[in-house]
């Protein structure tokens, strides 16, 4: 089965890609670049480095821009998937959706219309278990966006490790924050994973945060052989 993966460069789509590569043939990554920083559908921080992530992984990337207008962005997503299906002869699309019925429903409908399988390998996965698996599998993931109280600037750029997971579990109990950020509380960027052929090293970055909202802007990176 030839699959395309909806890829944001964050931990969920990267882990979904990892699982999909172990079972089927992933022939392309599809990244939607939303101009709307508050898109309901698409991860926005550091989407610009998906080109380098794709190069590090060794799978071609199809990148499509959207204005990010609610529902209109779905037409842009549909057109991107349609284009990928035509170029790469896809049988299905893989997503990193964990619990969002909002996201999964919309992508399922598009895939149904285009006669493609929609596959969600992380569907209903326990979020703490997911984070632990990523750390145990030696993923190098940084927090690249925070969007909920009491997360603040100090979280930006932090590597996800056992210590961070423990802190997120405490926040889950106290403030009902989804530890994997499925509710949009935080966004992540993957710099390295076991299946990456090269790792990404940050050479310049900037933190831009106010109160409990902020992003870790990656300004320049380089790919390093592993």
């Amino acid at each position: 089965m030839k699959l395309g993966v909806l890829f944001s460069g964050g931990k969920d789509s990267t882990y979904a890609l990892d699982i999909a590569m172990k079972k089927e043939t992933v022939v392309c990554l599809i990244a939607i670049v939303s101009k709307n920083k508050e898109s309901y559908m698409f991860h926005t921080p550091n989407i610009h480095i998906t080109d380098l992530q794709a190069e590090a992984i060794g799978i071609p990337l199809l990148k499509v821009e959207t204005e990010g207008i609610k529902e209109k962005e779905l037409e842009d997503l549909e057109n991107a998937i349609k284009k990928a299906k035509k170029i790469y002869k896809l049988n299905g699309i893989v997503t990193g959706t964990i619990q969002s019925v909002y996201q999964s429903k919309r992508i399922e409908i598009i895939c149904d219309k285009l006669n493609l399988k929609c596959i969600n390998p992380l569907w209903m996965k326990d979020q703490v278990e997911l984070l632990n698996e990523l750390v145990e599998n030696k993923y190098n993931i940084i927090i690249s966006g925070i969007f909920a109280y009491p997360l603040d600037e100090s979280w930006l750029g932090q590597k996800i490790d056992k210590n961070i997971i423990a802190k997120l579990v405490v926040l889950q109990a106290k403030y009902e924050i989804n530890p994997a950020g499925e509710g949009g509380e935080l966004e992540t960027t993957v710099l390295d994973a076991p299946f990456f052929k090269k790792r990404i090293v940050l050479t310049d970055f900037e933190k831009n945060a106010k109160d409990n909202s902020g992003i870790f802007i990656i300004k320049s990176v380089e790919l390093v052989d592993k």
Binding site: M1, I19, A20, K23, V94, K117, I119, W123, M124, K125
Partner: peptide
Amino acid sequence: SLEAYEFIQPIVS
């Protein structure tokens, strides 16, 4: 199958 992650694992959980 890859699809088993979506249709079996949630039941197992």
